[in-house]
Design a protein around this nucleic acid. Structure first.
Lengths: 336, 336
DNA sequence: ATGAAAGCGCTAACAC
DNA sequence: GTGTTAGCGCTTTCAT
């Protein structure tokens, strides 16, 4: 920075002021500094400036994986806001339990970020408490954390809406496929979606049947196979299937097609998420605005960083919306 | 740190030495420092230590998106190595041209990372030259950058291997679906895969036919529909289709199934990538070790950071492997 | 083996 | 509107 100051013929203070966009710099000096900075391709060292301001200019994210559609989408949305705010994005991905323990033991984000976003992670109360003592605001994404800042979608309304779509198509025997694969950070949404399904049935006066609710445990297509085997073996099989997540819905379509059961001719299939693949497969689904979640979470984090009076327990609930595609249709006629 | 020193009854120097694992600390002092640090949940400030060491302890990644399967997988692999090396991961995602221009204009990674990884990004020579002047090692992932460090897979061998698989199943009319959707950072692999396809045909004495090579342009299933329309309208339609990327292969399967053309009974479909979805769809594919690419790139970066004598233009080529699943089978008999 | 002191590159207060 | 100066929290000589 001293070099820039020399070249521009001003003091380092003026350079600092100019580069931070403070108004108290004469147009002339400002111009000379900018030119000098460009010529020397000077970039502020966040380390040095952070040392004195106490800010790091960085937002950290804790996520169980980076290779899932959902986390990737959230990060995309987040990236946009942060860039706009001049904040950097630092990622702590914690693949297994050992790494998770290490993270919470050392808490490396402690002094190295201005805020922490926890994406799609079911934390224990003990872990959350640990984060409370972090000294920086924490925002929970895709999870309701009572008493803490969180951003999530309205799973109940989404599932209710999806189920109603099937009811409106004439379906009465609507199976529900629950994911019991133990996907990290998902148990919360899972419970809520099931509630929405039940509510829609109740509202429409459709009788709920336990036999129509199946837990999909096995991974890969086998899980869907087992579930469909069960459902199709029923005295009165369903005419529609609502899968809690797109992945299972898609696997189900695959299984049905292999069995030459037409979708949606003989069986409608509905998903939840709007995974990129839902479009490729023409799956009707309850879309969850993943990148929007990231954007909102980023804004919340920004507010929490900039404004000490911001509510540290603010909640933001985002709506879902149904995307009708080709995998759902009217209930088959009796003759079929 | 001063607090820790007080509590442990030593000087800050001793605390610093202990926390960095230097050997020149008495067991007694070491123990007291560790205890004090734990009690105060003290974490080193990278900003302050970086200021004096000149290292940031951070590796930056430049990627066009975060929500793609490939980038996510690379980052997962990368995350592991970096964590092991005590390095943090910082992400610069550059969604559009404006952001891209801004990145190369300001080069924010300049003094804020010890290395930069460029993932899946077709840079102009001018942009690459700009990165050369960054002052930190740059590693190109999924791209051959002549004269610069890069990590990529052997696309030619992979495509050759995949094509041979189809030939071994008896196929002679093998269509090739090229992605012309302008996916960022992909033109390089695209060319190489096509070469591999051609080589395999030539090796086996199978005549290449231009009519069998189709560019898929439209997005979503429509692109696959158009391509299959073209191919199935041929006097002598193909019996197998090799899609350059899994996404197109999967869309193709969807199109074929809607048209009641059995896969692989009447048409075999082969992909390239091993996208997470390939497994759900039982797609035979040439697997590309995405997270392994990240791991190797991370190690390369680490070597470049630690060892000034490391070859700044090292290349690492990773192998692909064929994963046979249910979407490819023997060529249909003439009676079919 | 340990401590004292200098200084990394920047910002913030204070003078001017 | 601009320059001077004192640190921010560490690491690193240099003594001891």
């Amino acid at each position: 920075m001293a070099d820039v100051a020399d070249r521009a013929g001003v003091s380092v203070s003026t350079v600092s002021r100019t580069l931070r966009g403070l108004s108290t710099v004469s147009p002339d000096a400002k111009h000379r500094v900018e030119e000098a900075a460009r010529e020397l391709s000077f970039v502020i060292s966040r380390q040095a400036s952070g040392l004195v301001t106490g800010k790091t200019g960085t937002v950290a994210v804790l996520a169980p994986t980076l290779s899932s559609w959902f986390v990737g989408s959230v990060l995309s949305g987040l990236g946009g806001v942060l860039r706009g705010a001049g904040l950097d994005l630092m990622i702590y991905s914690v693949a297994d339990l050992a790494e998770r323990a290490a993270f919470f033991d050392r808490l490396p984000a402690r002094r190295n970020a201005d805020a922490l976003l926890v994406i799609s992670f079911d934390l224990t109360e003990e872990e959350s408490a640990r984060l409370d003592g972090l000294g920086v605001p924490v925002v929970y994404v895709s999870q309701r954390a009572p008493g803490r800042a969180s951003v999530y979608v309205d799973d109940v309304a989404g599932a209710r809406h999806g189920t109603r779509h099937l009811i409106n198509l004439g379906h009465r025997r609507i199976a529900y496929l629950r994911s019991a694969r133990g996907a990290a950070g998902f148990t919360f949404s899972s419970r809520r979606r099931y509630v929405g399904y039940q509510e829609a049935l109740a509202e429409a006066g459709v009788e709920a049947a336990d036999e129509l609710v199946v837990d999909v445990t096995a991974h890969g297509r086998r899980g869907a196979e087992e579930a469909m085997g069960l459902l199709l073996g029923l005295r009165e099989p369903p005419t529609a299937v609502f899968a809690e997540v797109d992945q299972i819905a898609i696997e189900t379509i695959g299984v049905l097609r292999s069995a030459h059961i037409d979708v949606p001719g003989r069986m409608s299939v509905l998903g939840f998420d709007d995974h990129e693949m839902a479009e490729w497969m023409e799956l009707t689904t309850v879309a969850q605005p993943a990148s929007e979640l990231g954007r909102v979470a980023g804004e919340l984090a920004r507010a929490l960083i900039d404004d000490p009076d911001a509510d540290p327990a603010a909640h933001r609930e985002l709506p879902t919306h149904l995307i009708p595609r080709a995998s759902t249709g009217p209930v088959p006629t009796v003759s079929a």
